[in-house]
Write a protein that binds this DNA or RNA. Structure first.
Lengths: 200, 200
DNA sequence: ACCTGAACACCGTTCAAGT
DNA sequence: ACCTGAACACCGTTCAAGT
């Protein structure tokens, strides 16, 4: 894909992002260097600066792309026009989140670590809010069905999100020890759903 | 404290750690450089290598120190020979954790981001396990009092820990928006405790 | 033991200059 | 518009040498 030299004609930005995502997965954010990416793509070390003001701008773009992917997956898991009870759908949503989180550790760090690069951190927050809203909408549905306690759905979504996000962090930090992640996930979601039920 | 030049006589390691912790709080892990610390302390740039094999070793030492502080605070909050109901003590423990987490953002990142520096990551995991055990012990007490559902206390502790840790992450990422952190914390702990009650 | 100074191989960022 | 090459000010890490 580098053989045609096509980066030099307008798609260097896309090529940088693609390569950056691969490096991020293989070597983490530490291994991400503008000069290294330029080398990989066969352009001069100053070329990336045309498309990303600085290293942080590249990382912000990766985070935005990560949130976009995550939100798409979450919407698919939550919507699905599914006739199943709300609990089953919440569980599916939770598993989807944990799966994504452990499969994209370094990316998640970029998504949730605020490195206020002026403008783009607002875009990131907006995408994060959208993640929470996907959960909130499902919880609201649960409230209408009488399966979820009353209260601001957004605030309840913050709690639900915290549970799965925190669990992914523990998993990545090897703090779950011999507990298989799927079991830990299902227990977490069981406790969460029990706590969200009315009259809990 | 630099005026006596005493770093040159055996306490450079402690001085480096002290300064590093300050830099970490002020500028985050990005701002942490061995050369910078050496400059701040008036020693040569190669001096730190006597005490820390590399930059990661310094960060690991910071993480170990962070976990030690955290665990002390958690023990105080959990033990306290408190006669109050288990729920109140869990709430206090949870608030303690969230307070520590948002007050030491960058440090928490070092504590939970595994950068396997060979030996020391095992020490870190051990300290993390101890954090979980503090929660587990309190939950076990709750089980004996009939206030907490049955099941492996360690696994239930993983869920509880996930909730407060995730909440701290959301707070630091500015994803709680206009929800005051104490309110979000109390709601999270209310949902968690409801979910942990028997017959939830 | 503990620290220094030089050296090497990297960085990010900027900027005049080329096409 | 887009990229190059040189330059500057940083890094981490290593290692002979000093005290």
């Amino acid at each position: 894909m580098a053989a045609d030299g096509s980066y030099h004609h307008g798609n260097l930005r896309a090529a940088l992002l693609e390569r950056a995502e691969a490096v991020l997965t293989e070597a983490g954010a530490e291994g991400l260097s503008l000069r290294g990416l330029a080398r990989d793509l066969g352009v001069s070390h100053a070329a990336p600066s045309r498309h990303f003001r600085d290293r942080q701008a590249l990382m912000d773009a990766l985070a935005v792309s990560g949130f976009t992917t995550l939100n798409t997956r979450m919407r698919t898991a939550a919507d699905s026009g599914d006739p199943r009870p709300i609990g089953a759908r919440m569980t599916e949503l939770g598993r989807t989140y944990v799966d994504f989180a452990v499969a994209h550790t370094a990316l998640l760090d970029l998504m949730f670590t605020v490195k206020h690069a002026d403008g783009s951190s607002e875009e990131l927050r907006e995408l994060g809010r959208e993640s929470l809203l996907i959960v909130a909408r499902l919880l609201e549905e649960g409230q209408r069905a009488g399966a979820v306690r009353t209260g601001d759905p957004v605030r309840l979504a913050q709690v639900a999100f915290s549970t799965v996000h925190g669990l992914a962090t523990l998993a990545v930090a090897s703090l779950l020890d011999d507990t298989p992640l799927p079991e830990a996930t299902d227990l977490a979601l069981d406790v969460l759903l029990a706590g969200l039920r009315p009259g809990g």
